[in-house]
């Protein structure tokens, strides 16, 4: 995606802190399922992965719980240990990943729903692989 095509809009998240009903559900979570389905369709059709920023949406903690529970737990749970843990967990719908970033104090700093074969963050970058290869070469040279 070229930089100039990325729309920069200011989203008012004020609604997120409005008075919530007693059970804490705002009714915004169920509609998200349709959006996820659309992203999954696109992934299957074009192979293009995408993400939904859960912090940018007016979701209450109860909404998030509902969404997480509804989407269920899949087979894979990945933990990335860097500057605080990040968990990238597959949901019961393969291709849909629940991504939570924590800071070093354990507080959640951001949440995404990623629709991808494998979350972007998990894949090793070619540059890093090259560095790894150099390290491998070093190990091999140490053998002789």
């Amino acid at each position: 995606m070229p930089l100039e095509n990325i729309p920069i809009v200011t989203v008012s998240a004020g609604a997120a802190v409005g008075p919530a009903p007693l059970d804490g559900l705002s009714g915004n979570a169920p509609v998200l399922l349709r959006e996820i389905a659309e992203h999954v369709n696109r992934l299957l059709a074009t192979g293009e992965s995408s993400a939904i920023d859960l912090n940018a949406l007016p979701l209450t903690p109860a909404d998030l719980d509902w969404l997480q529970e509804t989407l269920g737990t899949g087979e894979i749970a990945i933990t990335l240990e860097s500057d605080g843990d990040s968990t990238l967990n597959e949901t019961a719908c393969p291709g849909v990943w629940w991504v939570t970033h924590h800071n070093e104090h354990g507080a959640v700093v951001s949440r995404f729903l990623e629709v991808a074969f494998v979350p972007e963050l998990v894949k090793a970058h070619p540059e890093d692989i090259k560095i790894g290869l150099e390290h491998l070469d070093l190990l091999i040279s140490g053998l002789s």
């Binding site: 729309p7 920023d53 990335l80 970033h101 951001s110 972007e120 963050l121």
Partner: peptide, 30 residues
């Protein structure tokens, strides 16, 4: 700081700035 840590940071930064998730990736790569 590893690449993944940096990408994670950019994703959070984009979220804080109310930019779409794709912007976080673009930011990190740029």
């Amino acid at each position: 700081v590893t690449r993944r840590t940096f990408f994670k940071y950019c994703a959070t930064l984009a979220s804080l700035m109310a930019l779409p998730p794709s912007a976080g990736r673009a930011m990190a790569e740029a």
